[in-house]
């Protein structure tokens, strides 16, 4: 997906700074202040978004360590038995989640980009190959893969209103639920 939050935020900040804020009535102090806050908030989002996943994972990691100590401190107190058991259940679920979140979203995206590029290079090379029958198979495979992916791409941006018949595109939640996403 080329339309990612980084480019959206950058272009919104530029529009605010270059066009909108200079046009705001300087006497309307509420509007001036809020326009500047919008820029500040967008800049904060641009800073936070690439870190958000790591930030949350870091917190979960430290919470697990911290609650381990807490459990040890309180396990001797029988009055706290139920609370300690509940905490243990949550810790087990948290540890499992942490194990599943070993990679970063940035790594996921980098892997997608590399695969796209390598697959594209293969398609171009196959087009130049003299084996027509093999190329026909490559062509069919690319068209089939693209059909599934483009349906998801179109669905993800459905709220923008590009589709002449939006009812022909399933909601993105349905498409992602149907796959591993």
């Amino acid at each position: 997906m080329q339309l990612r939050s980084e480019i959206q935020i950058a272009s919104m900040i530029k529009a605010m700074k270059d066009v909108v804020i200079p046009a705001v009535d300087g006497d309307n102090r509420l509007a001036v202040e809020q326009a500047q806050l919008v820029v500040g908030m967008l800049s904060l989002m641009a800073h936070q978004l690439p870190l958000q996943f790591r930030f949350d994972r870091d917190e979960l990691q430290r919470l697990l360590a911290y609650t381990q100590g807490l459990t040890e401190l309180c396990s001797a107190d029988r009055a706290l038995g139920e609370a300690v058991r509940q905490l243990a259940g949550c810790r087990a679920a948290g540890a499992a989640a942490l194990e599943r979140c070993a990679g970063d979203p940035a790594q996921l995206n980098a892997a997608i980009r590399e695969l796209r590029q390598a697959a594209g290079a293969l398609v171009s090379a196959a087009a130049d190959s003299s084996d027509e029958a093999a190329y026909r198979q490559v062509e069919s495979a690319v068209l089939e893969l693209s059909k599934e992916q483009l349906l998801r791409d179109r669905s993800l941006v459905l709220p923008q209103g590009w589709e002449p018949d939006p009812t022909a595109v399933p909601p993105i939640e349905t498409l992602l639920d149907a796959g591993t996403g």
Partner: peptide, 21 residues
């Protein structure tokens, strides 16, 4: 002068590409 507009337009590419497919 209108990066926000050209950014908005990026995603129209998916419908166009699907039409091409």
């Amino acid at each position: 002068h209108q990066d926000v507009l050209v950014t908005w337009l990026i995603s129209l590419g998916y419908m166009v590409m699907d039409d091409m497919r």
